[in-house]
Design a protein around this nucleic acid. Structure first.
Length: 520
RNA sequence: GGCGCGUUCUUCUAACGGUUAGGAAACCGGUUUCUCAAUCCGGAGAUGGCAGUUCGAUUCUGCUACGCGCUACCA
């Protein structure tokens, strides 16, 4: 027995690691889905394996146009490029389950042949009725070993009748015949030992009356056919793991079946429950990687990309939601993530998403970028405002203010005054810092500035300081009003640097304008 | 209701029987500066509860509470 185990284990070890991300195209990909994809990708790359994208579109009623393209674009934006899958080629396709439709029936038939599954003719309406009746009695209807013998299926009907019904084209489903009283124990790679007793499980539909398999059958068959070695999916799938294990067993393909890992859920920042698409609007953060416009309702949902997040920040943030390296490192490039990733270091409990932390990551990645790169990213924003600027000057400006930015769009907020004179002045600053004699002092300063020949921050500062000392004026009493005149508010980088950049004429002009405009 | 999973500062998490329970975000205070932010320094802040095992439990076991997930011819 022990040696058999060893052989099995070594057999599994020999196989090339293959994992899949298998979303259903029912809408935009949620950030939780992206994290699942990320962990699959990291695991695959860590072990030199393959990462596949399979589209699980077995429910044709829930198909949403554009969702598949959205999923692919999201993965690309995050740098999670599949080795195989819809849109990426591969030998074991097709990778869209609707296109694999003919492949599933024979597995369902095989299960029936061997007594692991049966035909059921109960209509959806009949079952609904049973559910309602049970509910009235404060019970729950379940199609299982207790009820299957009283329902319309190939277990209770004579084989002649079953044949007749099938021949007549009557609708039927194929259900799994859950075995009695078996303990299914599995070593989940994240959660450790997890066990279930089959008496608590119901006879799940494997094959629907529309000729499509359900998720349960399709994912087992496909994972088998696609040589998937590890299934890494969300915690919501944990309850169906025993069914899947039994399916592999009944199909006689247990030996090569994948190992399971169930990821913790991503929870709402506040309140209860898992993160949902509505939370983003309510609390002002994106839930989706990319902007999504619902073609039916016309509603749109913001995306991390359009909100100005860098993909590397988004990925880094997601990686640390439910996983840590065991060190104090918090910033990881994709290569570093691949290097450090380990399923055993995935946390078991659900993680509450913190939008603030996402911003913090973005700030970090923005600071890492050179002024030249940021200037390039900022240029379109400037162009849109009809402003042109020299690359060199733009770099200078960006370099000066980037440390106070979280997003590229913040560059404008922090640097607008380099491009445009202020149109209004901050009330609070005006009230507290603009004294009756301020205008008079600023007039004197303007005259002084006229005399400055070398218009450089250092030189301006020297002339200015000497003047201030001679006059015995307080630095603050004059500096803040000048800043107000140049910037329009009381924030920003070094005042003399601003003077240098906007130029002598503009500096003096703005000071004069402020003196003319601000009336106490 | 049933089944399953989970529970360390406000949040993300570390500590896999022996630590003053560590780090990060946020928050507060200080530093710096003409201002704001950043920076830097400092502060406050946690093992849900009850038993048991043990010389010793955040860590192991049981119970309980709470939270979450699943319980569709959805995935």
């Amino acid at each position: 027995m022990l040696s058999l185990c060893r052989i099995l284990i070594s057999k599994i070890m020999e196989r090339k690691v293959r994992v899949r991300f298998a979303p259903s195209p029912t809408g935009p990909l949620h950030m939780g889905g992206v994290r699942t994809a990320l962990f699959n990708y990291l695991f695959a790359k860590k072990h030199g394996g393959d990462f596949l994208l399979r589209i699980e579109d077995t429910d044709q009623n829930r198909f949403v146009p554009g969702a598949e393209e959205y999923i692919i674009e999201s993965l690309k934006w995050c740098g999670l490029v599949p080795d195989e899958g819809v849109g990426f080629g591969g030998e074991l396709g097709p990778y869209r389950q609707s296109e694999r439709k003919p492949m599933y029936k024979k597995y369902a038939d095989l299960l029936i042949e061997n007594g692991f599954a049966y035909y059921a003719f109960d209509t959806a309406e009949e079952l609904d009725e049973f559910r309602k009746e049970a509910e009235a009695k404060k019970e729950v209807f379940s199609y299982d070993l207790h009820t299957r013998n009283n329902l319309k299926n190939s277990l209770t009907l004579s084989s002649e009748e079953v044949q007749a019904r099938l021949a007549s084209g009557e609708h039927y489903v194929i259900r799994f015949k859950m075995p009695e009283n078996r303990d299914i124990v599995e070593e989940d790679l994240i959660r450790g030992r997890v066990s279930f007793n089959t008496n608590q499980l119901d006879d799940k539909v494997l094959f629907k009356s529309d000729g499509m398999p359900t998720y349960h059958l399709a994912n087992v068959v496909d994972d088998h056919l696609m040589n998937i070695t590890h299934v890494i999916r969300g915690e919501e799938w944990l309850p169906s793991m025993p069914l899947h294990i039994l399916l592999y067993e009944s199909l006689g393909i247990s030996e090569t079946r994948p190992r399971f890992s169930h990821l913790p859920l991503i929870l709402k920042p506040e309140g209860k429950g898992k993160l949902s698409k509505r939370d983003g609007d309510k609390m002002g953060f994106p839930v989706f990687p990319l902007l999504w416009k619902d073609s039916v309702t016309g509603e749109s949902y913001r995306g991390y990309r359009e909100d100005g997040y860098f993909p590397e920040a988004f990925v880094n943030m997601l990686a640390l939601l439910g996983w840590n390296s065991g060190t104090e490192q918090e910033f990881f490039s994709m290569d570093e993530l691949i290097e450090s990733f380990d399923l055993s270091r995935v946390v078991k409990s659900g993680a509450r998403f913190d939008p603030e932390k996402a911003k913090w990551f973005n700030r970090h990645y923005l600071q890492q970028k050179s002024a030249a790169e940021l200037a390039g990213l900022f240029l379109p924003i400037l162009t849109e405002k009809g402003i042109t600027a020299e690359q060199q000057q733009l770099e200078h400006i960006v370099g000066m203010i980037k440390e106070r930015c979280e997003f590229v769009k913040d560059i404008w907020t922090q640097a607008h005054f380099f491009f445009q004179a202020p149109e209004s002045y901050d009330e609070k600053t005006m009230k507290s810092k603009w004294k009756p004699d301020t205008a008079e002092k600023l007039q004197a300063i303007s005259e002084l500035l006229e005399t400055v020949t070398e218009w450089k921050a250092e030189a301006i500062k020297e002339t200015f300081s000497a003047f201030m000392t001679a006059k015995e004026w307080g630095f603050g009493a004059v500096m803040v009003p000048i800043r107000l005149a140049l910037v329009g508010g009381s924030s920003g980088p070094d005042l003399f640097e601003i003077c240098e950049l906007i130029g002598k004429t503009e500096t003096i002009g703005r000071i004069k304008k402020a003196c003319d405009t601000i009336q106490l």
